[in-house]
Simulated scan of single mutants.
Amino acid sequence: MAEFPLAGRRLRLGVIGGGQGSFIGKVHARGARLSGRWDVVAGALSSRPQVAQESGRAWLLADDRIYTDYRVMAEREAARPDGIDAVAITTPNNSHHAIAVASLEKGIDVISDKPLTTTLDDALDLVRRQKETGLVFGVTYAYAASAMVRQARQMIAEGALGKLQQVHVEYFQEWALTPPSEAGAGAQWRVDPAIVGPTFTTGDIGTHCHHLGAFVCGRPVTAVRSEFHTLGPPKALEDTAFMHVRYEGGIPGTIMISQVAPGAHCGLRIRVFGDKASLEWNQEEPELLHVRRFGEPACVLTRGEGAGIGTHAARFVHMPRGHPEALSDAWGNLYEEFAIAIEARRLGRTLPEGLLAYPTVVDGALGVKFIEAALASSQSGGAWVGCSLPS
């Protein structure tokens, strides 16, 4: 197995967003630290000066590396001999494009939360800028860095299921049953079209389903037919959607999502059926991969060394079986891949083909195209709409 190269040094990360009351910014920072390849050294954790200062000091950032403006942070960090190697964008959706542009223009590699942008034009602009600069641009579809997701991907690529026949991905949550007016600020902006873009649940968790299915199967989604619903408390955008999708090669599938499903916490599940076998992974039981072969007893693979675990999953095995690993570890895995890619770029090092599989800016743009296609389909009464990027 091709091993991950040893780190030459810890890379320096700056974080945009993540201040008081933010959830996802802290997740990024913890994932980076857990990877063992990053130090978080700078941040524009809030545009509010007092919150930025208080949050930055709580993160143990030096006073001169606590910022309130991402543009100032990009300029000053790019000028420092010990400036940041990459920036993590953990802000609401409508700011991702501008922050990414400011960073790319200063030669700073980018790691962005999803969805990548609120419009396809902005997403394609980032694809173009990444190609022109050659900088690394990762997108944090963190479920794809779970060890057993990598196991599923490798098994499918090696033909363990036979010819793929159907793919089903679902993600159910309950938190949006709380009326937006009674929820916290983080919940309120997620249902504001001016901030999140044209969808709520499709952009928030539907993009995870879209990416996970394509990633595990190694085939992009080519078309979608969707139906949007608002089933919970009144809001401007959908909180539930049911979709038929087609993967490359005409493989049919479904995506079902809702954030108003009582009793559901983070119920992301994928099931893939071939003509010889099927597999199933549930992120609430991330250590397990269910494999069922036609006419044979069901099998459950558990994360760990050996016993059927492939090389791609083994790189992300950090503890022996029985010592659980979960989503926090997946974030660490993802930041490890980002670090390896960024260090290799900076050193001019060529990595073995297939060593890394982190989501890229193109994956992020495909997610934005999926959002727009699903919305257009629902608005048209359920017509099939293409999900491919323009050439």
Rank of each mutant, 00 (worst) to 15 (best):
residue 173 Q to G: 02
residue 8 G to K: 14
residue 38 W to Q: 04
residue 73 M to W: 11
residue 380 S to N: 14
residue 194 A to R: 10
residue 312 H to P: 06
residue 7 A to D: 13
residue 321 R to N: 12
residue 210 H to R: 07
residue 149 V to I: 12
residue 284 E to K: 11
residue 253 G to E: 07
residue 369 K to S: 12
residue 289 L to I: 02
residue 284 E to S: 14
residue 263 G to A: 09
residue 148 M to Q: 08
residue 207 T to P: 04
residue 347 L to C: 14
residue 167 V to M: 10
residue 386 G to L: 08
residue 391 S to K: 14
residue 329 D to T: 15
residue 332 G to K: 02
residue 318 H to T: 05
residue 385 V to E: 08
residue 79 A to D: 14
residue 184 G to Q: 04
residue 66 I to F: 13
residue 366 L to F: 14
residue 6 L to M: 12
residue 359 P to H: 04
residue 269 R to P: 06
residue 145 A to H: 05
residue 290 H to R: 15
residue 302 T to N: 15
residue 250 G to N: 08
residue 272 V to A: 03
residue 305 E to W: 13
residue 389 L to Y: 15
residue 369 K to H: 13
residue 40 V to L: 02
residue 244 H to G: 09
residue 311 T to Q: 13
residue 282 N to Y: 07
residue 91 T to I: 02
residue 214 A to S: 15
residue 252 P to F: 11
residue 104 L to S: 03
residue 241 A to R: 02
residue 263 G to M: 11
residue 44 A to M: 09
residue 24 I to H: 12
residue 95 S to V: 07
residue 246 R to F: 14
residue 53 Q to H: 11
residue 53 Q to A: 13
residue 346 R to Y: 07
residue 238 E to P: 11
residue 18 G to E: 00
residue 164 L to C: 11
residue 238 E to I: 04
residue 228 F to Q: 13
residue 225 R to A: 03
residue 208 H to V: 03
residue 118 T to K: 06
residue 183 A to L: 00
residue 251 I to T: 07
residue 387 C to G: 08
residue 354 G to W: 02
residue 266 C to A: 14
residue 241 A to M: 09
residue 149 V to G: 05
residue 79 A to I: 07
residue 359 P to R: 05
residue 95 S to E: 10
residue 333 N to G: 08
residue 334 L to Y: 12
residue 289 L to H: 10
residue 186 G to N: 13
residue 193 P to N: 02
residue 125 D to A: 01
residue 119 T to C: 04
residue 177 L to F: 01
residue 351 L to N: 05
residue 36 G to C: 07
residue 255 I to E: 04
residue 211 H to R: 00
residue 281 W to I: 15
residue 336 E to N: 14
residue 151 Q to H: 04
residue 143 Y to R: 10
residue 316 F to D: 10
residue 341 A to H: 08
residue 31 G to K: 00
residue 120 L to K: 01
residue 334 L to N: 05
residue 196 V to F: 00
residue 351 L to A: 12
residue 37 R to S: 03
residue 115 P to Y: 04
residue 358 Y to A: 02
residue 298 A to F: 09
residue 160 A to L: 11
residue 327 L to V: 12
residue 38 W to V: 06
residue 250 G to Y: 00
residue 1 M to A: 13
residue 348 G to L: 13
residue 301 L to K: 07
residue 362 V to K: 08
residue 212 L to R: 06
residue 119 T to L: 00
residue 33 R to A: 07
residue 329 D to L: 12
residue 54 E to G: 01
residue 208 H to R: 02
residue 115 P to W: 04
residue 228 F to P: 00
residue 182 E to C: 06
residue 303 R to Y: 11
residue 321 R to M: 05
residue 267 G to Q: 13
residue 79 A to Q: 10
